[in-house]
Design a binder for these strands. Structure first.
Lengths: 196, 196
DNA sequence: GTCTATACGAAGATAGAC
DNA sequence: GTCTATCTTCGTATAGAC
């Protein structure tokens, strides 16, 4: 019952996430979301009484859950090294397929959010936090101590998000590939070390 | 003759960089820059015929050069490990002193820039590129091969920028501290390895 | 649930006086 | 070089009909 809602509603949230990915949060106006989703104007304040801020907040939640789902999906199939590889590959694919136009919507909101809308910062922190917890759990399962797993999970998310920004700005996959390679080596070493 | 200009002009660029740091690029209106810098209204299109876009572009250059200067300054005093430590410490300090409100203006513009203003993306790429080249040179001087130095320099910038976003969103220095610690270990190992 | 119309404000940019 | 309008566009939000 919680947050499902109508098809129109869902399409609006997805359209908002897509626009934020490409143009940033501030540039994601209600008009743009409407034209992207094909939703009727009258639906806006019916579905989102909180207006634009609510729409952006839900877009962050939507994008965050989408990525979390991919991590969970990959988690069943291999070691943390493979999961991080897939995490990187997912962003890489999005980057290439969008012609280096699409970044991470969660990060976009993080950068633009100010003190006027703490809910947005909270939504961002929650999304990042969930990705972190999923990765951390995988590392613990692989034998790492809780502290080290915690730190490495943070490191992976920071490095990949940062590389995504660099790759997008420089319009080449190099940074993301470099970071993927370094992370692979680092995680492999950490897991081997913990097994000894 | 090149880019010096009047005091008013300089203050406007610095104010723009400060606003972008805190509020993002889109939220940095001309009005805001004027009130922050105390510059007169009539100066805007006199000093910046390209309007707001030019102002943002120069703010990116200004911020990029500021950080480059700090890297160069730190470079004279120690190994790459120390330089990266200081790089992290600089961001940490800014984060804490601003109450977790200020992030990196270059990254902020990177995230919000769209196809309408390729000059902005270019300015961002150039700033990141310069930081990268400075770090890479330090790593090469420390004995690393060019390829590995290149990759590690990218990794450092990506990880620190990402950690800055995480720390700001979660309003705690943990992510930045974690990343700083991991980078220290990674760089130390890479340098030791290259010496053997 | 959806539509049109409109109020209201913010922001970029320009024109012309001083 | 700087100031004061002013034009125009855009975006949020609301009111009220259907």
């Amino acid at each position: 019952m919680a947050a499902s809602g109508s098809g129109t509603r869902q399409r609006m949230v997805a359209a908002a996430a897509g626009s934020i990915r490409r143009h940033g949060a501030s540039a994601t106006s209600i008009d743009r979301v409407l034209s992207l989703s094909g939703a009727p104007r009258g639906s806006v304040y019916h579905h989102f009484p909180g207006g634009r801020a609510q729409l952006v907040e839900e877009a962050v939640g939507f994008a965050g859950q989408h990525v979390s789902g991919l991590i969970v999906e990959a988690a069943g199939t291999g070691s943390p090294v493979v999961v991080v590889d897939r995490f990187v590959a997912m962003w890489r694919k999005q980057l290439v397929e969008s012609g280096f136009r699409d970044g991470c919507p969660v990060l976009a909101v993080a950068v633009e959010s100010d003190e006027d809308h703490p809910e947005l910062t909270d939504a961002v922190a929650e999304a990042f936090g969930r990705w972190h917890d999923l990765l951390k759990a995988l590392l613990v399962d692989a034998g790492l101590g809780a502290g080290r797993a915690d730190q490495l999970a943070t490191f992976v998310i920071a490095a990949v998000e940062g590389a995504l920004v660099l790759s997008r700005a420089q319009r080449r996959t190099g940074p993301l590939d470099d970071v993927g390679g370094e992370l692979r080596g680092l995680l492999t070493a950490a897991i081997e070390e913990s097994a000894s």
